[in-house]
């Protein structure tokens, strides 16, 4: 362990109200801590700047997965294991189950949370592409109340979010797909398990009368933050399944992504493979 234990202050609020009051009193001074699977890595390496932490893990208000007729509402402390074990998630959001299955391995899945995965804002996180594909919304709370934002507009740049210093992600709301749906998820990691993404693509399409009636594609590890492939979506919307313009879609992808070279893959590799996954997804969609 290279890190050392600096003086830190940790508060363990018993209620959400208490947590929000603390955040409101000193906005930006408190770093929320949920499952710790990202934060503790940085802390152990001795790179964590923050010294004041708000341990959210005991806030029951942020737990649980609730279902109504139209949507599933995930408390932000829902773990990957919660996602994997929930029947309704399997039924409506197979991509989310797959995202959870490929995030780290079991010991990580037991601790890491959906809210943490979102607020840590890593471009390589594995649940965001699926949340983007399903058109998720976030419920953000502060002492002033709550507001809803489309997840697709939440990430605004590398580690930049539409999240005020006194706000927490309380819930992730995902509308249940209706009609005939098509789900696709694939992560390309550094290995088959316990891996960080080099490319991740999740897609959801609603099919109507042999055409693409609705389509959302979420991408990971190919931009400063998780992104929607909006140019591709635009191109394909309304197209007949029998003759999807796969090569044109691949070309359009160029304006949706901005991959970089890093320790895990080159920008070129990411760009080629994202195109290939898109083509693979569209071939499957053609068969749907």
């Amino acid at each position: 362990m290279r890190g050392y234990l600096p003086p830190v202050e940790v508060r363990v609020p018993a209620t959400l109200g208490e947590a929000l009051t603390l955040l409101a009193a000193e906005p930006g001074l408190w770093t929320p801590l949920a499952g710790g699977t990202d934060l503790m890595v940085v802390f152990n390496a001795g790179h964590l700047k923050a010294t004041r932490f708000l341990d959210l893990s005991r806030l029951t208000e942020l737990r649980g997965i609730a279902e109504d007729n139209n949507l599933l509402s995930f408390g932000s402390l829902s773990t990957y294991t919660d996602l994997r074990e929930c029947r309704a998630v399997h039924q409506h959001f197979p991509n989310l189950v797959k995202s959870a299955q490929v995030t780290g391995a079991l010991a990580i899945q037991n601790r890491g949370t959906l809210g943490g995965n979102i607020a840590n804002a890593s471009p390589a996180a594995d649940t965001p592409p699926s949340l983007l594909a399903y058109g998720a919304e976030l419920e953000l709370v502060s002492v002033l109340g709550s507001r809803r934002v489309a997840y697709a507009s939440f990430h605004q740049g590398y580690k930049q979010m539409d999240l005020a210093p006194d706000e927490l992600v309380a819930k992730v709301l995902v509308p249940k797909p209706t009609g005939r749906g098509f789900h696709y998820f694939r992560k390309v990691g550094t290995r088959q398990a316990q891996a960080i993404s080099k490319v991740c693509l999740a897609a959801y399409a609603r099919l109507e009368k042999g055409c693409v009636a609705e389509l959302r594609i979420g991408l990971g590890s190919v931009a400063p933050a998780p992104v929607r492939a909006r140019a591709v979506e635009q191109l394909l919307l309304g197209q007949p399944l029998a003759s999807l313009p796969i090569e044109a879609a691949r070309l359009a992808l160029g304006s949706d992504i901005s991959p970089i070279d890093d320790i895990r893959a080159t920008a070129h590799y990411r760009s080629v493979v994202t195109g290939n996954l898109l083509a693979q997804m569209l071939r499957e969609l053609t068969q749907a």
Partner: peptide, 16 residues
């Protein structure tokens, strides 16, 4: 060595 973490130096898992 700049990938001097187990996360970035990739040895096989049981699934590989």
């Amino acid at each position: 060595m700049v990938n001097n973490q187990m996360t970035n130096y990739i040895i096989p898992t049981s699934a590989d």
